[in-house]
Simulated assay, not measured.
Amino acid sequence: MSHTAHIPSHRKPRRSASKLALRAGVAGGVLGTIAVAGAAGPANAEPVTETIEMPTLGSLDAGNLASAVAASAETSQQEALDQSLQSLERAALEKAAKDARKAKAEADRKAEAERAEKARLKAEQERKEAEEAAERASRSEERAQLSTASTTATNSSDDGGSSSSDGGSGASDDDSRTQAPSGSAASIVDFARAQVGDSYVTGGTGPNSWDCSGLVQAAYRAAGIDLPRISYEQSSMGSSVSLDSLQPGDILYWGSRSGSYHVAVYVGGGKYVGAQNSSTGVVERSLDWDPPSGAVRIL
């Protein structure tokens, strides 16, 4: 009787590399046992002619395993890339929102600064206008007080003999206001009138912008006469003259003689030239427009 051995092949899904190795080891053990049994059988036993069918686990499952590993690695890489892109998108959105908030805050700050500057300029303009109005009112009040004091003094010293002076020893108001300047007075008047239209700048000494005392100083310099720079120092020089006896070239002042805050040059004809303020610049005005407090004569 022929002894044959047949080992059926049972294939199951490969679960892991460790299980595959274990199964290979078991199969090897079985084959070794069969070989030993065959060698120990009868001498006349017929050789085993049937082929033992073994599963080709190595080549097939190794390829599937490599493919699975590669697919898993590719999936993991794609997931990592997706997460990286999502992180970049979130960071970009957060940065854009932060930049937008910063730009809005800067725009709001600039707008607020512009509003504050406009309000400041408006307040400054209103303050200047109020100061100029108060200055004119103060000059008018001082002029009225001087006129009242002058009238009182004249009435107390005149007992009605004023008519004796009609043939007169002195010049009338009209004569004193219309007489033409000459000599140094003409130089002073011509220089002052030549600056009419120039701008007013605090501390200005020419040639195209002036303040009140800077203009008076330059006009007298044109006649070869040096004056101090400050208005109250200029009005303190020379001799005091009545506003009814003005001559071209006299210095008009506003305020007290030793504390004047504004000066100008009398040019004759009841007019003066002065650097008034930043709104008017250098102008020629009638004495009635802004009556001075007094006058001094240096020539």
Rank of each mutant, 00 (worst) to 15 (best):
G255I: 03
L88P: 03
L121Q: 07
I188R: 03
D211Q: 09
P291W: 06
G203W: 09
T280K: 09
T178N: 12
G28M: 15
D290N: 11
G294P: 12
S245I: 04
V267H: 10
Y261R: 07
S67L: 15
Y253C: 06
Y220F: 12
A137S: 08
S235G: 01
F191W: 12
V282Q: 04
S18G: 05
L57C: 08
G183K: 09
R11P: 00
A37R: 12
E50L: 14
A35D: 15
S187C: 05
A134K: 15
D226A: 05
T56S: 11
A180F: 04
E79Y: 15
S213G: 09
A134Y: 06
Y200V: 03
D99P: 04
V69G: 13
S138F: 06
A105Q: 07
V189S: 08
L287Q: 02
L227I: 00
R221I: 00
A111I: 02
Q78G: 12
A71G: 14
V265E: 01
I298C: 10
G32Q: 15
A97K: 00
G255E: 00
T75V: 11
A223I: 03
V26D: 10
R177T: 12
V196L: 11
S240Y: 08
S258I: 05
A100H: 01
W210E: 07
M54W: 10
G206S: 00
S278H: 06
G255S: 10
R120Q: 07
S59R: 15
W254M: 01
D226H: 04
K122C: 01
L93H: 08
